[in-house]
Design a binder for these strands. Sequence first.
RNA 1: GGAUCGAACCCUCCAU
Length: 347
Amino acid sequence: VYTYTILIRSLGNIGRLDAVMKLFESMTAQRCQPNLFTYHSVMHALGSAGRVAEACEVFELMLQRGQQPDAVTYNIIIDALGKTGELEKAFDYVRKSHSFTNEVTYNSLLSSLGRKGDIKGLMELFGQMKARGLVSNELTYAILIERLGWAGRVEDVWKLYLEMVENDVKYDIVTINNVLDCLSKAGRIEAAFELFQDMKVKGLSPDTVTYNILVNGLGRVGKLDAAGALLLEMEENGCPPNIITYNTLISSYGKWSNLIAAARLFDEMKDKGVAPNVVSYSCLIEGFGKAGKTDTALSMFNEMKAQGCPPNHVTYNLMINCLIRAGRFGAAMDYLREMRDSGCQMG
RNA sequence: GGAUCGAACCCUCCAU
């Protein structure tokens, strides 16, 4: 049974669901009784693959065979249902599991509610969790901060951050990056930099993502020199810029009509061995388009195709917009047709 | 006494 369980878990982790199910069935055939861990592994594998209905069937099968579920069993099912958005069913299981609900259950539910954008439900559930005296673990805050960040709720994110620090809840660089991103997208760049200094004092090292977020924040408010300086600084601090760093800066330069800097950076990234992707080209096309340099935008559009980087629906939208702005409706229609024929989504 | 299948929950940054 142990051997089977280990095998099933490993196969599940690498996504070999077919093999998992085969093993599980062959256990039954050999009258080898699966234990609780075996059921968990199978259910978890099914759930991760989005095959929740089958996971529920395994759950029922387990009950029929007289195996009692525990908190983990329910949490696996509840988490799987939440991830496919079947929250009503997830709550059904919460009711069934009653005495088993713990902080992990809440984390799963919070995560799913947040993914759906149900901020009200999110906050209510968090309140309920506190009221029940459940200890929020480090993931609770991580989840809340991230999901509230998606909704642009800066105030709430900031409050939670302070609460987390005050309660000595552990946090990692990802959570801090989420807070920073939220601040920086809200234009609160000073606050973001304060936190940036603060995290260093607390011994948390910024990573490339941290810098990317700050570069983006500076770029959005037009502080292009500071953003450019940060590019150099991150390199010195052992955080090599990646394609996202370059794309972020190229986009900012383009948005603020600094096309020379945008083009220079585009060349620089290639020199450094970072291959431009569809976003890089799109940012340039957007920049040139907004500046009325329609022909330059067109030549970038052709260049990317020649470089084996097919435009996607965003690129087409930008290109078509640019042509319309220039009054070149015929060409715009041509690209619209090309877009449709190329089979890319219309976005 | 310790070690052993001991399992479930977040994962961040770029373009329209």
